[in-house]
Nucleic acid binder design. Sequence first.
DNA 1: TCTTTTAGGAAAAGATCGTTCCCTAAATCA
DNA 2: TGATTTAGGGAACGATCTTTTCCTAAAAGA
Lengths: 204, 204
Amino acid sequence: MVQRMQQMARPRGRPREFDVDQALDKAIKVFREQGYNATSIEDLTGAMGLASGSIYKAFKDKRAVFLAALDRYMRLRNDQIALIAGTRGTARERLRAVLGFYVDSAKGIEGRRGCMVVGSAVELAIVDREVATRVGATLARNEAFLADLIRQGQADGSISGRIDPDDTARVMVCLTQGLRVVGKSGRAPADTAAAVDIAMRLLA
Amino acid sequence: MVQRMQQMARPRGRPREFDVDQALDKAIKVFREQGYNATSIEDLTGAMGLASGSIYKAFKDKRAVFLAALDRYMRLRNDQIALIAGTRGTARERLRAVLGFYVDSAKGIEGRRGCMVVGSAVELAIVDREVATRVGATLARNEAFLADLIRQGQADGSISGRIDPDDTARVMVCLTQGLRVVGKSGRAPADTAAAVDIAMRLLA
DNA sequence: TCTTTTAGGAAAAGATCGTTCCCTAAATCA
DNA sequence: TGATTTAGGGAACGATCTTTTCCTAAAAGA
């Protein structure tokens, strides 16, 4: 049984010397800053600490590296937001925490580095169907997530029942994506609490 | 006198056969769809109806074409918004009209085509200082424009005096830029009036 | 009319980029 | 242990992209 698991863990030839996820994290950093087209294989080898041959052993081509990085980026970000929204309190308080996370992500160096979803949407959505699909799915998921949070707030009494959860969530998604655009130019709101207070006005 | 004006109008050698602004409009279309790095000189020659040599006669290099296109795009868009905001009515009504224009810009084919300011911010702001300067200036101008409109509304009584015009305008700019990101993936709000109603909640 | 200046256009040059190839290294299988 | 399989790494290749060059065309100046 243990031997079977070891066999499954070590497939055949020479084992990979680097951790794929760690390498993807480096790739994510580069793609967030420069986007897809401006990032050369040389940029990736430098950031990931690998030779070009090794990259092409692990990934079909540059686009596959990007898609893997995008998937990982979206997953990590989703996990973070789910964690923040999982804290105690009314749905309104949890929604406030989520919005605060978005505002903070848009500030300073992190904001300048940018968002891979926004970058993918702007640079590639029109020419790469697979990227467009993923971006659309993430935006839809974020929208549904926020709408659900709003509905929870309407159920626990912390959010007005007069607003439409879906329409409001959709506008809120625009706000969060816009924060990342503005963050790229270093003009994101400096005062997180103040910005979140204003954003919370969308809830009636 | 007439001869002097003709001299000024026709400088020296062979006159240019194409209209620079018309050519830039074609370039804007390509840059909006594909961004800077994905657009080749061949793309530009095709869209602008010029040979590469002619482009390099009129512009220093590809980057100069992009900067000229960006400047023209920003100017045209600014003019449109100023026109819309110049209509009669309370400042609140004019602000509503401006927001409606932003929402409409994010919808359908126009939305998929994208915004050159957003594209520039996301793709180039971190690597091109000159682009970053222009993007920052436009965002600041938009912010000041919206803040002024809010102040007018507070003066004419159509907008609550309890909100901070600058902070609110800053969040509103994020919303408008985000609309363009979401529009790239075809997920912009379908019902303009409903989306504007929700956005107007930011005014208290 | 002849010279000078600038534009149009296509081909060539020069640079860069993505990908493949080849050799060595490290693992498993027989 | 020898064969097989896969990874690491760097050079080489082929394609593409930006820019320059060169020749012709069209205008003004003398």
